[in-house]
Amino acid sequence: MKSIMLPAFFLCIAPLLPSTVMAADACEVVLCMYGKTTGNGGGKECSSAEHSFFDIVKKNKHGFLPDHTADARKAFLLECESADPDIISQIIRQFGRLRG
């Protein structure tokens, strides 16, 4: 009975523990990537947002798909409803098809 209780306890408590990996908010990514397009990098504060952007990569069995990657990155940035679509287009034109 004790051997069943301990794993059950950990399964119940696991969702309550804070996650060490936090995904960046889409608006934060838009802000940081727009700064990067204008030559004003955000420094250490923007490193996780930039990683979140460049971690969005689409591949198939033949390799990297730049157009699909750009579409997926654009879809992520569009989750920020307050972002200007022109700014998002500028970010995608400059960084959307690059490999992370």
Rank of each mutant, 00 (worst) to 15 (best):
T20I: 02
K74G: 13
F95Y: 15
L11M: 13
L6W: 07
I91V: 08
N60A: 06
H62L: 10
C27Q: 03
I91C: 07
K36Q: 15
A14S: 07
G35K: 00
D86P: 00
Y34H: 13
F9V: 14
V57K: 13
M33H: 06
L17A: 11
M1D: 12
V29E: 02
T38P: 01
M5I: 14
T69I: 06
D71N: 08
L17Q: 08
T38K: 14
C46I: 00
K36F: 10
C32H: 10
G63M: 07
C12Y: 13
N40I: 12
S48E: 12
D71K: 14
R73G: 04
A23T: 00
G63H: 12
A83I: 00
C12G: 15
D67T: 11
P66V: 05
I88W: 00
S47I: 15
K36C: 06
L78Q: 13
M33N: 09
R73L: 02
C46F: 00
S47Q: 15
P66T: 08
A83K: 02
F10C: 10
I91T: 07
P66E: 09
L98R: 07
L11R: 09
K61S: 14
D55G: 15
L78C: 03
S82Q: 11
F9Q: 10
F10R: 09
M1F: 12
I87E: 10
T69A: 05
F64K: 09
P18Y: 03
M33D: 08
D25S: 09
G100E: 04
D67E: 15
I4N: 10
I56M: 11
S82A: 11
D84Q: 03
S89M: 03
V57S: 11
A70H: 03
R97C: 02
G96C: 08
P7K: 05
F54Y: 14
L78T: 04
I88Q: 05
L65R: 14
G96W: 02
N40T: 12
G100P: 06
Q94R: 07
P18M: 03
G42T: 07
L17R: 05
G63D: 12
E28A: 10
A72V: 02
I13F: 11
H51G: 11
R99N: 12
A8Q: 14
I4R: 13
G35M: 07
A49T: 04
